[in-house]
Design a binder for these strands. Sequence first.
DNA 1: GCGATTGTTGACGTTGACGTAAAGGGCATA
DNA 2: TATGCCCTTTACGTCAACGTCAACAATCGC
Lengths: 160, 160
Amino acid sequence: MPAELRRPERTFTIRQLCTEFKATPRALRFYEDKGLLTPARDGMNRVYSYKDRARLILILRGKRVGLSLQEIREILELYGEHDEAMTQNAHSLKKFREKIVDLEQQREDIEGAINELREACERLEKHLAAKRPDLLPKAADYDQMLRARLDGHPEMLGAK
Amino acid sequence: MPAELRRPERTFTIRQLCTEFKATPRALRFYEDKGLLTPARDGMNRVYSYKDRARLILILRGKRVGLSLQEIREILELYGEHDEAMTQNAHSLKKFREKIVDLEQQREDIEGAINELREACERLEKHLAAKRPDLLPKAADYDQMLRARLDGHPEMLGAK
DNA sequence: GCGATTGTTGACGTTGACGTAAAGGGCATA
DNA sequence: TATGCCCTTTACGTCAACGTCAACAATCGC
């Protein structure tokens, strides 16, 4: 991650975050509406801190693994005030454990789905290779795709 | 898997499948509407074959990993007529490969999310243990949850 | 000063995946 | 015969997660 981004006093405009993470302003405002983000203001304009940016990363990842905004908010709130009503934290704990079980199941499902898709691809390739080899996509296309994924945010690869 | 369920001539009512997989009749009819299922009929009533049940399992797993019904249908169609328009299959192939990359990313995300949730749980537990040990859930609860998951469909554990 | 760009707040529209209610048929049990 | 229960279809409702559009403010370059 570039040192530039790590400087705690660094701030971001809504558009900067949007282009960085391929989101839309509407989405960020929506998250704010739902209480997942609370950027500062400069007059009317939103000013996102480095912490806000970190939260956004968590939000987006949460979404990718199928969490609802509501669930994501619960998780984010854990990083906030630690000395709230304890019963609520006990409740969070329970829900988190449930979610872990959920995610482990999901991981298994994904393994299975990947395997099935791989097999389906193999069958399709054989089928195509036999009858219409001209339609076979080049291996380069796949490379291209992979690179496109990694290009965007290399710093997220090992992000904690 | 009980031999009973494997007998190819075995059929199921809508309600049987619903209770088995915790779905609703509305959902199954909806899938049928969208072309993902095509059960036989006995008069007006739907009669699901063993194959229909297998498709349903695939549908539900597809959903769990975040596939849309549309995408699931494409996959299911692959198991059907193999000699359709080849260009369409070439298109499917491309989309499948994209989906695989997608799922691999998702798997990474899930790993990360699980780790974070585990850490969060640990922090919470320490916090609670220190201040309100009475609120700590028993380990037995977690066991209970795990068993509840596995109870339902033991045959799905190794399902292909 | 003017247009372009980027920002703001509503308010309404959209899409996917169903839920729900209405209206009815078929069969069993009391 | 009536009371349930489960099945059917058709049609409208809902919820999340935004998209889209309108109307307006602030700032930048020229």
